[in-house]
Amino acid sequence: MEEKNAVAALAALAQPVRLRVFRALVGAGPEGMTPGALAAMLDVAGSTLSFHLKELTHSGLVRQERDGRHLVYRAALEPMSELMDYLAAHCCLGAGCEEITAASCRNC
């Protein structure tokens, strides 16, 4: 993942409603969710939700698909995984996370 893509993804998630939306979509799995279902679940106004879904879609973390008359939103798990890999790429000074325990990393 390129730095500019990581920054865009992190910026998209750096807002409470968008983070809640993204987490809900990750939890929904491959079925995704309609805007109406998301709005009801998160108690967010439709117009507000639309703005946040647009931002998440532009960041590449969410995908939109039309299913008949409905839009379905899904978390884009591959870019999410790439972001996690990007963030952990230099974890533990290259020692590898599996080799470092939480106790030994307190001083990191």
Rank of each mutant, 00 (worst) to 15 (best):
E2Q: 13
E3D: 15
K4Q: 14
A6Y: 05
A6V: 03
V7K: 10
L10C: 11
A12Y: 00
A12R: 02
A12P: 05
A14Q: 09
A14S: 12
P16C: 04
V17P: 05
R18V: 01
L19G: 04
L19Q: 07
L19A: 10
R20G: 02
V21K: 04
V21L: 05
R23C: 10
R23S: 11
A24N: 07
L25F: 00
G27K: 01
G27A: 10
A28G: 03
A28I: 01
G29Q: 00
E31K: 05
G32S: 03
T34A: 10
T34R: 15
T34S: 14
T34Q: 12
P35K: 09
G36A: 06
A39P: 06
A40W: 06
M41E: 08
L42D: 00
D43Q: 08
V44I: 12
V44C: 07
V44G: 06
G46Q: 12
G46W: 04
L49E: 09
L49Q: 09
S50M: 10
F51S: 12
K54Y: 07
E55K: 15
E55Y: 09
L56T: 00
T57H: 12
T57G: 08
H58D: 15
H58T: 14
H58C: 09
G60F: 02
G60V: 05
G60I: 05
L61H: 04
L61R: 08
V62Q: 02
V62W: 00
Q64N: 10
Q64M: 13
R66M: 07
D67T: 08
D67H: 07
R69C: 08
R69H: 12
R74Y: 00
A75W: 02
A76P: 06
L77N: 07
L77E: 11
P79Y: 01
S81A: 14
S81L: 13
S81P: 05
M84H: 04
Y86Q: 04
Y86K: 06
L87A: 08
A88D: 09
A89Y: 10
H90Q: 15
C92Y: 01
C92H: 06
A95H: 12
A95M: 13
E99R: 14
E99P: 11
E99F: 10
I100S: 02
I100M: 09
T101M: 05
A103Y: 11
S104C: 12
S104G: 12
C105G: 07
C105Y: 09
N107A: 14
N107M: 13
